[in-house]
Amino acid sequence: MREIEANTVIEKVKDLCIDANCEVPECLLSALRVAREREDSPSGKAVLGIILRNAEIAREERVPICQDTGIAVVFVEMGEDVRVKGGNLKKVINEGVRRGYKEGYLRNSMCDPFTRENTGDNTPAVIHFDLVPGDKLKLIVVPKGGGAENMSGVTRLRPSDGVEGFKDFVVTRVRESSGNACPPIIVGVGIGGTFEQTALLAKKALLRPVGKPSTHPELAKIEKELLKDINDLGIGPMGLGGRTTALAVHIETFPCHIASLLVAININCHAHRHKEAIL
């Protein structure tokens, strides 16, 4: 059994939190540049230009892209032949988040749901564990802002509602989000599974490189159709009108019960942040 020191994991999670908040992935920047070229709306073009300039400033000055540095969502893929030595993995990840948010001058956005009292260090992180073959530990840190997360939703359709049913649900949810989700957005869609699983599928769909189509040809076609339907809404950058409402739609599916068709949409703002590392 391979062993990794707890401190190595803490330091890595800390760095991932800071890097994810100050640097957006290149796939997002190229999608934004293409969108700026194609955008017809003058205010939409201006907004896209500001977003691109903001990304440069954030990277150069190590300042967060957005003041909402998010809930720290962490996806963990734990090899079956590796263990973390010298600390409970959940505690170790939370310690990394605590240090990352403090040392990176990131905002603490976590609070009690009722008293609204801030936890003071952006913990607890929301951690999703998965066991995989091998002896590696993969960590993906996804700071998730409140504005776009608030626009997400889960619904249960009748199986007979089919493809048109879930397309309607997705487009309607995007229309209702208007400028609140900070468009241009990335749309994650989960279809199938159980209630909690469909939501997780939608979140995982956001981890795919921006615009990379589904490996399933039929789903890839639906992703393309949905992207067109969403961009035809005219919402545009920041909801002020324009052609660019979404940069990509990513769909993930899982088999489901014969009685069910659960669908979830998890929206990400244009500050599409995630960073990963393999230890």
Binding site: V47, I50, I51, I57, A58, I65, C66, D68, C182, L240
Partner: peptide
Amino acid sequence: KGPRSQGVVDAMMKYKCVYFATVGGAGA
């Protein structure tokens, strides 16, 4: 950022107040 409700619009028109949008996610 994002649109306001009719209740806010009514107050804005009655008392003269403007709502400005700026770019979300451009905090740096």
